[in-house]
Design a protein around this nucleic acid. Structure first.
Lengths: 339, 339
DNA sequence: CACCGTTACTGAACCGGATAAGTAACCTGA
DNA sequence: TCAGGTTACTTATCCGGTTCAGTAACGGTG
C-alpha cells in the first residue's frame, strides 16, 4: 500500500491537485468549505507531505546542517554540544526543520560536507562552531553563498551572521572575584590556542591580571582533555611559588585538576581554589563541588537556530547577536587563600 | 547562477538526459567513451546530484534517522551517545548516507518523529536505542514497515533487526571478579528499571549473587543521574552491614558514588570497591581511577549502521547480531576488602 | 542476403508537490 | 443590463532526476 499523495486527496474530494495544494498550504484560492473538506480527508487518510517533492519544487530542504569536528575524544565528553543541539532543536522543531548531523575529522572534510550538503540541496543552511583563527570555513561558506550562522565570534566571522557570548568579560569577572577573595597568584588552563574563544579568554586573562598587577599569572595551553588538564595542573602545582587559584577552560579539566591537587596532598579550597568554565552536573558531583561559569547553552543554541532561520528566510541581513554571558556560580571549590 | 543539472551536462555533451543519467550512475546503456566524456563535463561544471530529485524518483532519501529520548540531562553527560553517533557515521559516510538527529522528550513525540520522517520520506530507516519493557516503538515501526535496527535486545525487538552486547554476561563476570577478590557483600546501583538493558543487568546480578550465595546483594534503582547515584550510595553506605563493593550502571553515578564515599570518610578501594559500567576518559580522571566495564561503543554504532543499511537494502532478512561484550578494565578502585 | 541480437542511444513518462495562467460563475455598481 | 472585478476553482508546466519503451546502426550467422 502506497503512501497517499495530494492526488489521492484530490480524487476523494472531487477537486484538482492544485486546489488541494492551495488548501493544504493555507493559500487563497479555495473556499473555506473546500479547505476544511480537504484537510479532513488529508487527516483521515494520513497524508504527510513528501519532503523530496516539496524540496524539488519549492527549493527548500527544510533542514539545517551541523558538522562537528571532533578532536580526540573531547566531543563525547563535553556536555556542551549535546546541550547546544538540544537548544537548536527546540527552535528548529517548531518550524518543522530537521537537523542533519555529521562528525568530521578535519577541516577539509568539514568543508567537503558543506559543499556536498549544499550541492545536493540537503540543507538550507548550516551552523559552524569552534571558530578558529584564519578559519577557512568562513571564506568557503561566503563563496558558496550557503546561509550560515557562526556560533562564536564576533571577530573573524566575515560577512556571516553570528551569535556569541562574552567569554572575555566572564573570565575577567572571575579573575576579579578571585582577587577580591585575596588571591594574588592565578593560573589559567586554556584550551586549544587556535580556537577564537580560547584566545579571547587567554587575552582577557592576560589583560586583567596585568591591570590588577598580580604577582603570578600563568597560562597553560591544552587540548581540552582531562589528561592534559591533569598534566598542566601538575606542572602548575610543582612550580614555586605556585598559584593559589586556577581557572580551567572546561569542566573536564577542572575535575582532572581537582583530582591532581588532592592526589598531591592539597586541600581544595584551602590550598587551591578552582573555577571551571562551563558548568555541568559533573561539577556538582565531585567533592568539593566546583565553582563554575554557568551558561544557558540550550538558549545559546536556540538563539543560533533563530538567527539561521532568519538568514535562510532572507528577510534580514546577517546580524551579530550577543547572548547572555556566563555568570559565576560560586560553590565549594573557591575560598580565601590559606596564608 | 543556478546549479548545473544533468540537462546542462546533456546539452554540452550532445546527448540526452537519459544517457547522462546512465553514464553518471554506472548503468549499462552508454559507451565507455561517452561515459568518460559525461563524467568529465560533470566534473568540469561542478555538478552534484540534487538529493530531492533523486529521492523523488528513486524513492530513497539516503538518510537514516536517530531520535534520542532525553531523560533529564543524562544525555549530554553520557559520552555513550556521541560515541555511538561517531561509530554510526563512520559507516554511513562510506555509503553517502546522512544522519538526521532529533532529541525528543517522550515516547509519543518520538513515535511522532518516526511517522513524520517516514511519511515525508526523509529517511530510509531509523535506529532506536534504550529499548523498554513493552516498548511501544517496536509495534509502530513494524506497522509502518519502516526499516529499523534496535540498538539493544535481543529480547523484545519483535520482528525488527537488532544489535546487542551481552550486558548480563559482563555483569556476572564482574560479580565473579569481586567475589574472587574476597567480597561477600555487593550492591548494584541500577539505572531506569523499565529499560531492557537495565533489567538484564539487574537480573544477572540477582542470579549470580544467589548462585554464589552472597551474604548481601542489594539493588538500588536510579534514573542514571549523578544525584541519584550519590543518594543511592549514601543509603547503601549507611546500612549495616554495608556492602564492600558497588557496581554502578554508568560512569557518572560511579563518580558520584566515589565522591560520596570519600565524603563519608571511606577510603576507596580499601573500604569500598567501585566498578563502573561503561568506561570513559572520565573514569581515569578521578582519584583513584575507576575500574570499569569497557566497550567499544563506536564499533557498536558501526555495526548498527551496517545492519540498518542491510535492512534498507532489503536483501537480507532482519537479523540479530551480537557485538563484543564489555570487558573488565581493572584500575585503582577495586581491591580486596579491608577486613 | 535476410534475420537476429546486441549496443548505444533518444524520447517520454513519472515521482509528488508548487504555482502561473486560464476560465467559468457570481457579485457589484453605474 | 452590462462591463469589471472577485471568487473558486482547473489545467498545465516545472523542479531534476530515474527508468522504461522504442529505434537506428552494426556485427555476426546460417
Amino acid at each position: 500500500m502506497k503512501r497517499p499523495t495530494i492526488a489521492d486527496i484530490a480524487r476523494r474530494a472531487g477537486v484538482s491537485k492544485g486546489a488541494v495544494s492551495y488548501a493544504l498550504n493555507g493559500q487563497p484560492g479555495v473556499s473555506e468549505a473546500t479547505r476544511r473538506r480537504v484537510l479532513a480527508i488529508a487527516e483521515e487518510i494520513g497524508w504527510t507531505p513528501n519532503s523530496a517533492a516539496r524540496a524539488l519544487s519549492g527549493a527548500t530542504a527544510n533542514a539545517v546542517g551541523l558538522a562537528l569536528r571532533r578532536p580526540a575524544r573531547v566531543l563525547g565528553l563535553e556536555p556542551f554540544y549535546m546541550e547546544l543541539i538540544s537548544g537548536l532543536e527546540g527552535e528548529l522543531a517548531t518550524h518543522s526543520y530537521a537537523l542533519m548531523l555529521q562528525l568530521v575529522g578535519d577541516s577539509e572534510s568539514e568543508i567537503g560536507v558543506y559543499r556536498r550538503w549544499w550541492g545536493e540541496r540537503r540543507v538550507d543552511g548550516v551552523l559552524i562552531c569552534d571558530l578558529r583563527v584564519d578559519d577557512a570555513r568562513v571564506k568557503v561558506l561566503e563563496e558558496l553563498r550557503l546561509p550560515a550562522v557562526v556560533v562564536g565570534g564576533p571577530d573573524g566571522v566575515g560577512s556571516l551572521a553570528n551569535v556569541w557570548s562574552d567569554d572575555a568579560g566572564a573570565l575577567a569577572e572571575t579573575v576579579e572575584y578571585l582577587v577580591a577573595l585575596g588571591h594574588r597568584r592565578l593560573a589559567h588552563v586554556a584550551g586549544l590556542p587556535h580556537l577564537r574563544h580560547t584566545r579571547a579568554r587567554s587575552e582577557a586573562f592576560e589583560q586583567v591580571t596585568r591591570r590588577l598587577g598580580l604577582e603570578v599569572a600563568i597560562t597553560e595551553t591544552t587540548d581540552y582533555t582531562g589528561e592534559q588538564g591533569a598534566h598542566a595542573t601538575r606542572r602548575l602545582l610543582s612550580a614555586s611559588p605556585r598559584p593559589t587559584a586556577v581557572i580551567y577552560d572546561n569542566d573536564i579539566m577542572a575535575i582532572a585538576g581537582l583530582s591532581v591537587a588532592q592526589e598531591m596532598g592539597m586541600s581544595v579550597p584551602a590550598d587551591l581554589s578552582i573555577v571551571a568554565f562551563d558548568d555541568s552536573p559533573l561539577c556538582q558531583l565531585v567533592h568539593p563541588p566546583l565553582t563554575a561559569l554557568t551558561r544557558d547553552i540550550a538558549a545559546y543554541g536556540a538563539l543560533a537556530a533563530q538567527q539561521l532561520l532568519k538568514v535562510i528566510g532572507g528577510k534580514h541581513p546577517p546580524a551579530s547577536v550577543q547572548t547572555a554571558s556566563a555568570r559565576l556560580t560560586p560553590r565549594g571549590s573557591t575560598a580565601r587563600p590559606a596564608s
